[in-house]
Design a protein around this nucleic acid. Sequence first.
DNA 1: TTATCTTTGTGAATCAATTCACAACTTGGC
DNA 2: GCCAAGTTGTGAATTGATTCACAAAGATAA
Lengths: 209, 209
Amino acid sequence: METLPGKTVERLSQYRRRLLNLLEEDKEFIFSHELAEILQITAVQVRRDLMLLGYSSVYRKGYPIRKLIEVIGTRLDNVKGQNVAIIGMGNLGMALSHYLYGIRPKLNIVAAFDIDKEKIGKTIAGIECFGMDRLDSTIRTMDISIGVMTVPQFAALEVAKLVVKSGIKGILNFTHIPLHVPSDIYLEEYDMITSLEKVAYFVKELDSQ
Amino acid sequence: METLPGKTVERLSQYRRRLLNLLEEDKEFIFSHELAEILQITAVQVRRDLMLLGYSSVYRKGYPIRKLIEVIGTRLDNVKGQNVAIIGMGNLGMALSHYLYGIRPKLNIVAAFDIDKEKIGKTIAGIECFGMDRLDSTIRTMDISIGVMTVPQFAALEVAKLVVKSGIKGILNFTHIPLHVPSDIYLEEYDMITSLEKVAYFVKELDSQ
DNA sequence: TTATCTTTGTGAATCAATTCACAACTTGGC
DNA sequence: GCCAAGTTGTGAATTGATTCACAAAGATAA
């Protein structure tokens, strides 16, 4: 089965979350234009994405929500689930832990790492916190495949080396330092400052017109 | 002057930050391929972006770093600076406040808002914290043009309404709820869960090959 | 039965972003 | 002074993402 384009994966993730909300208001079916409206995109875009899942709607009723959530799940999720670690339990790490806690049944946040002795050994936001010295062994024994880097910048490069060595498969990097990792590790970087500067630029532009 | 494509703006922001780092190691010139290497993109990409700035290198020496930083600045930054508010001083708001503090001289984080009485009236991470009831008036009197939404999901829609009414010009939304705003407000949304699900998907895919 | 309505699924077209390919150009070496 | 080297700037080509445009289909109503 073909690997989906990154953009489509992002939107599928969004579709699913919106659909889960809709379930609560016991809606059964949804039209492509309704879903599009919620996400502020076009209906064709939605249909294209769903097309890639090879799933079809019920005629003139739209897509059955429950079924659609399921179909998205079978494509996006790993059947066995995947274990995730938060690396750096500062404010950002905490925020993520809270956000992610229990939100996706197939993504289990199973460990956090920090250097702060106050935190080590404690369970914070439902997640056990280990020292950095236990990073390698814990990632291996707990079969953690995804690491979320939320350490302060000065520590980023050093910690990244450790993480790479530990045999992790994917890294989501919230550090401001762009990382270099071997090509068998999937790396996704997000930089909040860049986002803010982008907003600032377009505000400036819109303003001057 | 032409408005730059969003992608280019993002990269320019990155270039500048990397270049500022390089200054500290008193490097004077940089080749396009060096900058490309740091950001893990191609040299042509870098040159294309810089081309849009209408700025040229010194022959066979590369781009003078100091000058390049300046040129990026005159294009991205608002001369007068722009004021930013953090809306929701939870973990994520705190993380952002710390990150952004002083990092961009033209982006002044001048206020934060929260409902927590413990926080209101205090100065946290160098930023004065107000109650939500003072949101509208503070945004107006302090001439805040950018709002960073870091409130919990349940509050997102309600707070967004307030923010839109306050006459803000741009919103960076870290909430998981997609917002609908009038077209004269620039909206940038970022969803951490989607990023994590994307990493999870590609880890799964890479693994099964 | 037949016409009408509405929404989908998708080929083709368009628009946007990236990469290829190379002429142009100084500078440093000889 | 001339040649070789190395890097840039950019037109053209390619790749990727989005939108257009419309045939297809089955439910509904007359």
